[in-house]
Amino acid sequence: MNSIRVIGVGSPSGDDQVGWHVVRSLAHQPLPSTVTLLELDRPGASLLRYLEGMDAVVLVDALRAGFEAGSVLSLTREDLLTESRIWSSHQLGVAEALALGEALDLLPTRLALIGIEADPSQTSLKQLSLPVQAAIPQAVAKLSSLLAEWSQATSSPSPTIPVLTDRQ
């Protein structure tokens, strides 16, 4: 696997920041040198630009899927492209952007999403809720094993990887 990207998707409010936190934690782990890390703020359809040229992409995002707050879910490419979609009027969400990417044949061969169930009772705009904060190590562990599985056994680990951002 030549190029792998991990993209934390979110916004600077409450549990929606968790994708960025997970990516920042991942940056301190030994990772294959083919991995790039990125934080995106509500990218809409422009998410597809950051998938271009990649062999594999893992998205990390907060979810509202009805599980217990802090639950960590792994969604496969198939899961992501068959989930029921709600068309958001103001901008495309991740699921819609991926559906558009599939129609345009822009998606990488390997695609997954690590989702962390947000806490609906979280009222702080600044901080993560406790259950979501506590879920970060588990999300990082899932990511690490997925990346290890995807990367070539021959690629050497790189100690620190810079996190690129495109914020609003």
Partner: peptide, 25 residues
């Protein structure tokens, strides 16, 4: 109904539009 459905039949036009949008950005 939406651009996802349109993109399946008109991928080049939608890709072109997204490329132009990217230049604006």
């Amino acid at each position: 109904d939406n651009v996802m459905a349109m993109a399946k039949d008109h991928p080049d036009e939608v890709r072109r539009g997204m490329h132009l949008q990217g230049l604006g950005n």
